[in-house]
Each structure stands twice: as structure tokens, then as C-alpha cells.
Design a protein around this nucleic acid. Structure first.
Lengths: 193, 193, 193, 193
DNA sequence: CATGAATGAGACTTCATTCAT
DNA sequence: AATGAATGAAGTCTCATTCAT
């Protein structure tokens, strides 16, 4: 990812893949948007799939880093959960294209789908650990930490995605208080959070 | 939807679209799986997109009916939420292919994506009403019923989808207790539910 | 051409063939316009080509009859030529669809093209005889009566066709005086006619 | 029109379009005749229609140039008309395929037909000007120069086309004297020309 | 490193024709 | 006589990938 061209291609690819989806995206459009010749993409990436997987790995890893980097030892488990929700919304705001790609291209049986789920599972495991710790500390009381982790990821990302498409100008971070309250206290919420 | 062939095509299309996604699915494969000639599909449906939209409308409407049909006046708002979670998991078990199609093909800017989101918004609005009623009755305490509705839908469907791909033999209904508890009480849950 | 249905199909076919051309015309559209089922066309005509040839034969024969029927023994050769031009323009006005079909579908190497040219040659031969008689009577002085006949047909029909497309509301008969003068006297024309 | 492949495709297209007509011509046959892959045609031309329109524009423009290039200031109007007839027959001899395409594919309501008529109108306007000048100089006496121009074009091209199909080996230039005499003097012709 | 012309497999779609009713 | 559902061959066009320069 050193070369200037590589970066140009990377950015163009994120753009095009998120707008069109993997199948509908064309190497021609990516090349045009990156202002390089089509052959140049193939000099840097083995194939369309290769480019896509590379991009998705970078993106998911970045999501994981961004979200986890704000968690510190001093935080309570509840604070950690609030921070996870906030950081994920912040990431979706900054990299809204990744947000779309992530939820579009995860569910399927091709190699890239599996690769992608592997990355996502890795990310969700990190959330699971935070939840599991909260359970150990008897702050949380969920039976199944893994289900809770996927639930949290699903809740946050689908809500964000819906709002992105319903109103492209939406401020996702404004959703944070509601989503945090729901995550911690559910529909009964109230005083607890 | 009357004709025998139409039903054959419908079933085959659900199969192929869910396995391959809209773009990767081919009319050839649908025709083969339905045991009809390719031209026959075009006799009944205007285009690949038309077939897909028809299928998605039927599916989403069925989801809405299945989920709403079990809600009765006598239920408390909490019971209604539990039933929504249960019924949605039951639907995803019975029509797992629709579940995959729904989450794959909703996010995009083409006509079928918008059409599809329109259907989904309709379904989520139904959930929102149940939540809003609970808020009126001071059983629930969420600020934003719409966010809560999308959160519930995202939580349930992403969790279900993950488990379907992680373990095709999974019993989705076994997830119900955890998801219901999380929906109502969040991570703090415990005694409340 | 007895049956009611046959006539319905005939009229619809003229319509569609003239608007779309032979290749672009579809049996579906003809059937719809004739308000009969597609199979019904095949009950009355062997094939699309058969229908077309039948229609073209009827049309060309009608053109020939209409044009020749006004020629009488008493007319001078010049009057006959004027009448031919007038009658052809009148025919093109009344059956403008045939006019288009005739000039679109004559030039090619398929069976229907040859069949069609055979009909047209027959018609032009009739004009040739009128010209040849005028030459015998030393009223006309062209060397090659056949060339003169094709020239007359080409002059009248291309001019008519151009005006039909340039202005669909054109009154073709208004072109008669000019075309008659040109036919008889050429560009030098003047007093002779 | 620079690239070698482009020229190969161009020639093959003229061949196939003139033999089959626009609708019946296939990109497969054009590709085969040009000895290029089908995709190569689409690399150079946007569509079948695009290729056809390009070809027709080149052809009609060439016809116009060829015919007009022989007209000089010193010629009398009559000589100019004779030259127009001769040059058009010479063009039809050299590019007989264009001649066929021109008269087959001009009359219709699709984009390419209209584009084509626009080109043809441009050409015929050139003839009209020659005629109009002759009228100004009181050499010609036609009332309507435009009708005369279309008449001349129709006379020459339909006669040529008929002879090309009736006898592929015909020498079109042998028709020149007759057609010139008819153009200038009509059927009465004789001494005038 | 970079290019972009060329490729060909494969997709969607159309439509004349058939045939059981 | 008439119907219209069903067919499948055939056509246009797309696009990931290659390769000679």
C-alpha cells in the first residue's frame, strides 16, 4: 500500500464497490476513478476479488482498531459498551462506504464472503470479551455473551445503515444516546443507564 | 402466482437468488432448477429484476403477516416484543433463504434496492407501533421508538444470519430467550424480563 | 381473405410492418392490434414471411390496378403519364403504409425480397408499355423505355416518401403538377407539358 | 478510423449490413468477416447502431463529396446535372453496398433512420442548389426546386438499384445517357439535351 | 512500472413457432 | 376455428483478464 498508484486505486475501489456492490462494480470504472490504466490495477492486485478482499481486510481491521483503541482499563463495562457504540457510529460516519460494503458483502458462500465473515467474527469476538468481562463482574447479566455481541453489532449497524439511506445527511452520532440506552437497558431501560 | 409453472419458477428463484445473490444468479440456473425453458420465465415475468422484486415483495409481506398475526390485544407490550422476536426467528427458520436475500439486497441505489427498503420500512413501522404503545403505557422508556424498532430488527436478523452461516444446522429458536431478554432488558437485563 | 379474422389480421399486419419493418415487427404486436390470439395468425398464415408476402402481393397488385384503371384508350400518351403520376400519389396517400413497405423491403436477397421485386417489375412493366407506345407514336423520344419507367417510378415514390417523413400531414397530391412537369419535360420543361 | 482493426471492422460491416440489412446483420458475422473477436467491435463502437450510423455518415458524406467535387464554375447548369447523374452512378458502381444500404435503411422512425435522413437531406439540398441556380439563369423552368432535386435523386438511385439486383454484372454508367436525357428533357426530351 | 487494445466466455432478453386444449 | 402457454435458438452486449509494447 506504499505506492501512490496503489493508494489511488484503493480509494477509487472503496468508492466504486460501495456504490455498486462487488458484482456490479467494474475494473473500468475503478481505473477511471483512480486515473490509471486498467492494466495498472492488475499490476498491483491479482484480481478483482483480490483487490476487494484487501480492501475489506483493511477496512475491518481499521474498524476494530478504531473501536478498541478507545477502551481503557479504567472504564467500567457499561462505559466500554457506550464507547463501542459511539466509536462504531463514528467509524460509520467517517467511512460510510465501508459500512455499506460490510453489510452487503458478508452473507454468501464464495471465498470472499467467508474471508469477510472471518474478519467480522474477529471484530465481534472483541465485543464479546467486553461483555463477558461485564458478566464476570456481575454488571451484565446476559446468558450468552456471543449472542449479545452479535445483537449489539446488528443493532448498531442496521440502524446506522437505515438512517444513512433514508437521509444521506444524517448525523449518525446523534443516534448514540438512544442506541447506548437500548444496548444497556433494552426497552425497559430508564434509570439504569 | 396461480399457474403451476409460475410457482415452480418462484421457488427456484428464491433458491438461486439466496444462494448466489441477485447479480450472480442466472436465469439459466433458475430455469434449470424450475425445470422450465428459459423463455417460460420471461413469459411470466418481465425481467430478472421483475422476478426478483415480485419475490421480495411476497417475502417481506409474508414476514410482516407471520410476525403480526400472533399479536393479540390481550398481550402486554413486553409479551408482544417477545413474540415479535420469536416469530421473526421462526420465519427465518422456515424461510432462511428470504432472510439471506433481505439482508443482502437491501442496501444500494438501484430501483430494486429502493423498492425493497420501502417494504422493509413498512415492516419496521409495525414494530415501531408496538414499541410506541409500550412507551405510552409507560412500560417502555425509550426516547426514540423508530431507532428502537430498527435496533430490534437489526439485532434479531444479524444474529440469526450469523448463526445460519456459522452453523447451517443451528436451531434459531434456541436463540429466542437470549434475544428476548436483551431486547427488553439490554445487557443489564436480569430479573426484569 | 374471406374470414373476418383474416381481414383483421391483414390490417394489423400492414400497420405493424409499415411502422416497424419486417424484421422488427412481431407477431405479438400484430396479434394484439388485430385483437386475436397469436395462434390464430398461424391458423390463417403459414408463417410471418407468408403473411408478409401475401400482404405485399395484395398491395402491389392493388397499386397496379388503381394506377392502370384510370388509363383509357382516348388519352394521349402524355395524359397517361400525368395520370400515372397522379394515381400513384393518390395511392400513396390512401395507403401510405404500403408506400413505406414497398421501398423498405424490396432490396435484398431473401425469398420475400425477390418475390417482392417480381411484383414491382410487373408494375413497372405496365408503365414501360405506356412509354413505349408514346415512343412509337413519336410523342416521347427516350431511347430506353425501361430505364424511363424505373426513373418515373423512382422519381415519384422517393419524392413522395421523403415528403411523408418530412411532414406527415403533407398533401401528396399537391406534388402532382411539379412531378408531372418534370416527368414529361425534365428540368427544361416549360411550355411543352 | 485510424486503427487497423477499426478499418477491418468498417469494411466487414459495410459488407454485412448491405447484404443482410441492419436488423438481419449480426455482430457475429461482422466479427468473423473482420477476423476480430466480437468484443473488439464493442471496444471501438458503442453498439451495433453506433457502428451502423458511423458507417452511414461516412458513406453519405463520401457520396456528397464525390458528386460535388466534379462540379466546376465553368460548367453550365445542364452540364452540372449531367455530371451529378454520372458521378452518382459512378459512386453506386464503386460502392454498390452503400447504395443498397442507403435506400433500405432510410425510411423509418428509429433514431438511425432519422439520422440517416438528415444526411440524405443534406446531400439532396446540394442538388437543389444546382437546380435553383439553373432556374435563376432561366435555363431550367421547374417550379419547385426541392421536388426536382428529390425526383432526380429518386430517379437515379431506384433505377440503379433495380439494375444492380436484376443483373449484378450491369455497367451502371451505361445508364448515364438515358438518365441524363430524362433528367433534363423528361420523356419529351429529344433535341433539347 | 505502466499501458490499453484485444479477447471470448457468458449473461439477459426476444420472438417465431408449436401444440394441447 | 381459435387459443395462449411454452419453447429454445439466436442475438446484443458486458467485462475480467491478458499481453505486447
Amino acid at each position: 500500500m506504499a505506492s501512490v498508484k496503489t493508494r489511488l486505486i484503493f480509494r477509487a475501489a472503496v468508492d466504486v464497490f460501495s456504490e455498486r456492490g462487488f458484482e456490479k462494480a467494474t475494473m473500468d470504472e475503478i481505473a477511471a476513478k483512480a486515473s490509471v490504466a486498467k492494466g495498472t490495477i492488475y499490476y498491483h492486485f491479482k484480481s478483482k476479488e483480490d483487490l476487494f478482499v484487501f480492501l475489506v481486510e483493511e477496512g475491518t481491521e481499521l474498524l476494530r482498531e478504531k473501536v478498541l483503541s478507545h477502551l481503557t482499563e479504567e472504564m467500567s463495562s457499561s462505559e466500554k459498551i457506550r464507547e463501542i457504540v459511539r466509536a462504531q457510529l463514528a467509524f460509520f460516519t467517517e467511512y460510510r462506504d465501508f459500512c455499506i460494503i460490510i453489510l452487503r458483502e458478508t452473507w454468501g458462500d464464495e471465498a470472499r464472503h467467508r474471508e469477510f465473515r472471518r474478519m467480522l467474527v474477529h471484530y465481534v469476538q472483541s465485543i464479546r470479551q467486553v461483555i463477558a468481562q461485564g458478566v464476570d463482574e456481575q454488571i451484565f447479566s446476559v446468558e450468552n455473551a456471543e449472542v449479545a455481541a452479535w445483537s449489539l453489532f446488528g443493532s448498531t449497524s442496521i440502524t446506522a445503515l437505515h438512517h444513512l439511506f433514508a437521509d444521506p445527511a444524517v448525523d449518525l452520532l446523534a443516534l448514540a444516546p438512544s442506541l447506548q440506552a437500548i444496548a444497556l437497558g433494552g426497552l425497559h431501560a430508564k434509570e439504569i443507564t
